[in-house]
C-alpha cells in the first residue's frame, strides 16, 4: 500500500513538474513574442518622434524633452476638396483621399521627412525635426517636386477610373520651432509649435492667390540648392504678418546646372 501511495505521489509530482515546465515554456514564448512586438513598435515610433522621446515615454510614461529646433515645414492641402466631398460617395471619397495621402507620404519619407499631422484634406510634414538634417530644405523642396509628379500619376489613374482629378497647394518655410510632446495623458503627440508652422500654412494658402502649386519663403530660397528653379511672386499681405510676404514659386529642378 505504502508503495502505491509513494508511486502515486511521485507520479503526481512528475505530472505537476511537466505541466509547470510546459507553462513556463509557454509563458517564455509569449513573453518573447510580446518583447519582439514592443521592439518593433519602438522602431516604428522612432519614425514619428525622436528616439530619445520614444525612450522617455517607454521608460517613464512621459517626455519632457522639448527643444527649440531649426526645421523646414511643409504644408500640403487639396484645392477644391470641400465641394468634391459633397458630390462623392463617402466610401469613394475616403479611398480617394487615402490614395493621395499614401502617395504624398511616400514622397515625403523618401526625402528624409515625416508626416507629423493629417489635417482632413491636408497634412503637415517636417524635415529635420526627428534628427539633425543639414540638407533639410533641399529635401523638403525635393519632396514637394516628387509630390507634384506623384499627383500627376495619381490623377491619371483617377481619371481612368472615372473620378475627378485632384489639385494641391504646397507651402514651405524654414525657421525655428518648439518641438516636444504635447497633449494630455489621454491624447498625446510629438509636435511642433511656433510662428514658423503658422507661416508655412499661410504660404500654402497663397498658392491659390498666385495660381501656382508650390511656394517657398525667402528663408527657404536663401539656402536652397541653386539647381531648383524658382520664380519670384509679388509680395502679398497675409494675416498676422506685418509686412507683405515675398514668396517664390518652385518651377522645377535642373540637375545639370552647376
Amino acid at each position: 500500500m505504502a508503495w502505491l501511495i509513494a508511486a502515486a505521489v511521485v507520479a503526481a509530482v512528475v505530472v505537476a513538474l511537466v505541466r509547470s515546465r510546459r507553462e513556463v515554456a509557454g509563458l517564455q514564448t509569449r513573453l518573447a513574442a510580446a518583447s519582439n512586438a514592443l521592439e518593433s513598435l519602438q522602431h516604428a515610433f522612432s519614425r514619428f518622434a525622436p528616439a530619445a522621446v520614444v525612450e522617455d515615454i517607454i521608460e517613464r510614461g512621459v517626455s519632457t524633452d522639448s527643444a527649440k529646433k531649426e526645421i523646414t515645414v511643409l504644408f500640403a492641402d487639396l484645392k477644391g476638396f470641400t465641394p468634391l466631398a459633397e458630390r462623392l460617395d463617402p466610401d469613394v471619397l475616403v479611398r480617394l483621399l487615402n490614395g493621395w495621402v499614401e502617395r504624398m507620404s511616400r514622397a515625403v519619407a523618401e526625402h528624409h521627412g515625416h508626416v507629423s499631422k493629417l489635417l482632413g484634406d491636408g497634412f503637415l510634414a517636417l524635415f529635420g525635426a526627428l534628427e539633425a538634417n543639414p540638407w533639410q530644405t533641399n529635401d523638403a523642396v525635393g519632396a514637394a517636386l516628387a509630390m507634384r509628379a506623384a499627383l500627376v500619376d495619381y490623377d491619371a489613374a483617377l481619371t481612368q477610373d472615372g473620378l475627378p482629378p485632384l489639385a494641391m497647394g504646397i507651402g514651405i518655410h524654414r525657421g525655428t520651432v518648439v518641438a516636444g510632446v504635447i497633449g494630455t495623458a489621454e491624447l498625446v503627440e510629438y509636435g511642433v509649435i511656433g510662428s514658423t508652422v503658422n507661416l508655412a500654412s499661410r504660404v500654402e494658402a497663397l498658392t491659390r492667390t498666385h495660381g501656382v502649386d508650390i511656394l517657398v519663403t525667402e528663408s527657404v530660397q536663401a539656402v536652397l540648392d541653386r539647381r531648383f528653379t524658382l520664380r519670384a511672386m509679388p509680395a502679398t499681405a497675409v494675416p498676422g504678418i506685418p509686412a507683405p510676404l515675398a514668396t517664390f514659386a518652385v518651377e522645377g529642378f535642373a540637375p545639370h546646372q552647376g
Binding site: 543639414p134 540638407w135 533641399n138 540648392d225 541653386r226 539647381r227 540637375p255 545639370h256 552647376g258
Partner: peptide, 8 residues
C-alpha cells in the same frame, strides 16, 4: 558638394 550633395 556638402551643401547640395552634388557638383559638376
Amino acid at each position: 558638394v556638402l551643401e547640395t550633395l552634388s557638383s559638376p
